[in-house]
Design a protein around this nucleic acid. Structure first.
Lengths: 162, 162
DNA sequence: TCTAATCTATACCATTTAGTCAACAAGGCT
DNA sequence: AGCCTTGTTGACTAAATGGTATAGATTAGA
């Protein structure tokens, strides 16, 4: 339930790419000095971002990275999924090897699973509303969006079909 | 941003302890067979729960574990904190070694930090409302509580002082 | 064509987390 | 007292994650 390093630094790199002025792509070295990370590590992070379809790269001299689509069309939900996989997978209870007394053998009333569905739903509710552009525009923009989200569909909206 | 094994299994054990009928404490062996885990592993999990103050133990023959307070007074927030530490620590940005361009040197407008504050706030909002008792009473109880929480203070309530 | 700058890939080591093992401490029971 | 059942502890191995190193592929420009 904690943020992984890959999520934290991956997001920071993505922000720098989004923030970059001019038509030129951002180079790994820029990202590295900007975030205070080693170029090798940044290379690894942006590879994940690229394979996840969030950025595109051009190789060779003068190469670098660009967002694959406008910042306003990249949600935090997508970013986190790319950097760390889905928040709560469907196969969750199968993966955890408990012999079923409270889960596999009684899949309909597994209260633990229900809890995580709820929590995951609430989280997703928030993460889907926030885009990269919101982060670039600062807290104000984010606040407005979240407030609107809260008004339209309170937490009850996160209910994932009990 | 994923659930750790310790969180998942620790919570399941705690639920079994809470669910246990009669005045006798629950023994490690019961928990182990109930969840399909090795007794040794359960012992380790339950140690964390005890050190976190969620359960009390009695030693010797006929010993075992009990909740340290009523299930309705144990929130998911507390459980997760015991099993995996605080969700978002205050020292978060200090820990992550980025040389500050977007954070340490400009601590007041670090958009990443603001994001996590929001997300953490929303999460906490949900986790504080759900108690062990709710999980035992099943989805209905949980749904009602969350809905009420959503009504009184929508997501806006999670705003942590922008 | 050559070179330098850049991204790409894989292998590697360190740290953390998951889970096991074995020796020990404490309390009930005969 | 002695024994047996139970919790307690710390050390240990295995797997996942965090982060580094190195060799290779691609392109702009001289």
């Amino acid at each position: 339930m904690k943020l992984s390093a890959q999520e934290e630094y991956g997001l920071r790199c993505l922000l720098q790419i989004a923030q970059h002025p001019g038509p030129d792509p951002v180079q790994i070295s820029e990202l590295a000095t900007g975030e205070g990370l080693s170029p090798e590590y940044v290379a690894k992070l942006v590879r994940v971002l690229r394979q996840g379809g969030l950025v595109t790269s051009t190789r060779g001299a003068t190469g670098g990275y660009r967002l694959s689509r406008p910042a306003s069309e990249i949600t935090m939900q997508q970013v986190i999924e790319v950097l760390d996989g889905p928040l709560f997978s469907e196969a969750f209870c199968q993966v955890h090897t408990g012999q079923g007394v409270s889960c596999i053998h009684r899949p309909t009333d597994c209260s633990v699973r229900t809890l995580w569905r709820w929590v995951g739903g609430a989280l997703q509710q928030v993460l889907e509303k926030i885009t990269l552009a919101d982060l670039l525009n600062g807290p104000k923009s984010m606040g407005v969006r979240l407030f609107e989200a809260g008004q339209n569909t309170p937490l009850a909206g996160a209910e994932p079909s009990l």
